[in-house]
Simulated assay, not measured.
Amino acid sequence: MTTLPRPLEGSEPGPAAPETVLSDRAGDVLGLQEATSPPVAPMDPIAHAISTLDAVSGQMAPTEVGGRSRRREILDAASELFAVRGYRGTSLRDISGKVGISHPGMLHHFKSKDALLDAVIDDLEGHAQHVIDHIDTFDTITTERLEKIVKGDFVTDSQEMLLFAVLSTEAIAPDFPCRLRLIRLRRVYEHIAEHVLRAFEARGELVEGLDLAWAGRLLISMRIPLITREATIGAVQPSSAGVAGPDYLRLIEMLLR
């Protein structure tokens, strides 16, 4: 049986101060917790993820009929540039130039750069919601299928995951727009990872006594630097291109019996 290092006792952070407790409601800015509030019972990871995104589902823009709309073209261009240059490193004129639209024409669709970032994150949240909507398909997931999913996530043109990685890194800055939305989205992915691990645990295929919440956080935390490694080192050292997926699979294998 593989021996997996466990977190040191007492290394888990204590409860956040009331003024820093984040809400699991996507529409809230902060969820302030009364000091006298009774402790809340642990929630199933997917129920927790759903409660995090349930205020977002109504904000999704309808799919355009009859081809891509100009708004969709702007969103795709913004996502591509944000994934490479970051939000702060991309101007609205960069995006309008890539689309081939005038600057005033783009402002007709998005009044500001922050509004455009909001819409880009709507897309990321929509992807997470899609995964949750089909979460029952993960209840019987095999290592072979998991390997196929991981390889798909780490191909060099996996712009969505690179976008999430770059924006998450920028969100370290306290004044970054949509910072709390990115924090919540990361927590959603952690809950999804925990749910997937629970399916393996139910079949007795995980390391005995594994803390699933900790393992879910570990998997998502390691995903971001591995994706950025693929996009940077792989570009200047071709021999290391494509190694992020296998590295991630080796990490998952450490969790399995």
Rank of each mutant, 00 (worst) to 15 (best):
G67I: 07
L210T: 12
L4D: 01
K151T: 12
V131S: 06
D54T: 09
D24H: 13
P13T: 10
E73Y: 07
D136N: 05
D153W: 10
A235C: 10
L146G: 09
A231R: 14
V243G: 04
G152H: 02
F82C: 05
L32Y: 12
A241Q: 15
Y248V: 02
P39I: 07
K113Y: 02
V155T: 14
V21Y: 03
H108Y: 15
H127I: 12
T169I: 11
I172D: 08
P15L: 13
D153T: 08
A235Y: 02
I95T: 10
F82P: 01
R187G: 04
R250I: 12
R184T: 07
D136R: 11
P174A: 10
F110Y: 15
L206W: 02
R85F: 11
T142W: 04
L146M: 12
D211Y: 04
I172P: 00
L167A: 04
P15Y: 06
Q159H: 06
S158H: 11
T90K: 05
V40A: 15
K113I: 03
A165Q: 07
M106L: 15
R93Y: 03
M1Q: 14
H109F: 15
A213M: 03
K111E: 13
L182K: 04
E64L: 08
F176H: 15
L53Q: 05
L124Y: 02
G242N: 12
L32P: 07
G97Q: 14
T142E: 08
G234N: 08
L117Q: 09
P174W: 08
P45S: 07
L30D: 04
A119E: 13
L117P: 12
E147I: 01
S112Q: 01
D24W: 13
I183T: 03
R203L: 00
K113T: 03
V84H: 10
Y189K: 10
P7K: 10
I95E: 04
V99T: 03
V84G: 01
L182G: 08
A244C: 07
A61H: 12
I95D: 04
H127G: 09
P62M: 02
I50Q: 11
